[in-house]
Amino acid sequence: MTRAEAAYVIDVEDPRQVAGFADAIFVGTVVEQVATTTRIAIPETQFTVDVSEVLAGEVADTVVVNQQGGVDPSTGETVLLEEDPLIQVGRTYLLATRYNAELDFYTLVPQTGHEELPASNGGNNRQAEPDAVTQMREAIANAIPYDEPRPRVTAPQETPQESITTTVSEPTEESSTGASTPSVPPR
């Protein structure tokens, strides 16, 4: 296994920052792994997830969730981002994600964007809400909004103009040799 490191734009350990950063937070069960791609430097794995409850954002009943990490197709080696384990088929998670409209999937917030929830009891008894879900609801209510970085626009740099130096010379008088010499005003 290879461990990839990352720098994050939020404190992924602060649920309020995770809630403010995520476009969608929901509970879902992983149905299947559908693909592994390499977009930047490490593999990313996509899973189909059946959504059972939406806490924040808008999410369809079934979505594709992307997780950074997976099996590198060129080496066959598993690469994990900061040793963040991949979500598993058949398990139910609380998922905090960012939506990628271009690729039409939801990417997990690394490290803390997925928390496995206990298996339900089939609906026989009403179970109390898992602590992770209750805590995330509180984090959503007290979310610290993420300020999207804006492209840095700078004024065009002025190119220095070539300085043009003009030299004005005194009128000249023709000397007897035919050479010109500057005239000197009388004193």
Score class of each variant (00 low, 15 high):
G70L: 03
L95M: 11
G90Q: 00
L86V: 03
E115V: 12
Y99R: 10
A60K: 15
L94M: 02
L108E: 02
E53S: 15
L103N: 11
Q67S: 04
Y99I: 06
L86N: 02
N125L: 08
Q127K: 11
E77S: 14
V79Q: 02
E102N: 13
L81K: 02
S52M: 10
E82C: 11
Y106H: 15
E53A: 14
R98G: 09
L86C: 04
G113V: 00
H114K: 15
Q68F: 14
S74E: 14
F105N: 15
D61C: 03
A128Y: 08
P73R: 11
V64F: 04
T92I: 02
Q67Y: 01
Q88A: 14
E102S: 15
T78F: 10
S74W: 12
Q111D: 01
T107I: 07
Q111H: 08
E53K: 15
D84A: 06
G76R: 08
G113F: 02
T107F: 01
V64P: 13
Q67K: 10
V65K: 01
E115H: 11
E83W: 08
Q68Y: 13
S52H: 12
E129G: 07
D131A: 13
G76F: 06
N121Y: 04
T97K: 06
D84G: 04
R126Y: 07
E116L: 01
Q67T: 05
E115S: 10
V51C: 04
G113M: 03
H114C: 09
L81C: 01
V109N: 05
V79L: 02
A132T: 03
L55N: 03
E115P: 02
V65P: 04
P130V: 03
Q127C: 09
T107Q: 10
A60C: 09
S120T: 13
A132D: 07
Y99M: 07
N125E: 12
Y106R: 10
Y99E: 07
G90W: 00
L108N: 00
Q68V: 15
L95G: 02
N125C: 09
N125P: 11
N121P: 03
Y106V: 03
D131Y: 08
Q68E: 13
G76N: 09
T97D: 07
Y106S: 10
E58W: 06
G122L: 04
H114L: 00
S52P: 03
E129I: 03
R126C: 08
P130C: 03
E82P: 05
V71E: 12
V49G: 10
A60Q: 14
Y93W: 02
E82Y: 08
N121I: 01
V59A: 07
D131Q: 12
S52D: 10
E82A: 14
E58A: 15
P85T: 06
E83F: 10
T107C: 00
Q111V: 15
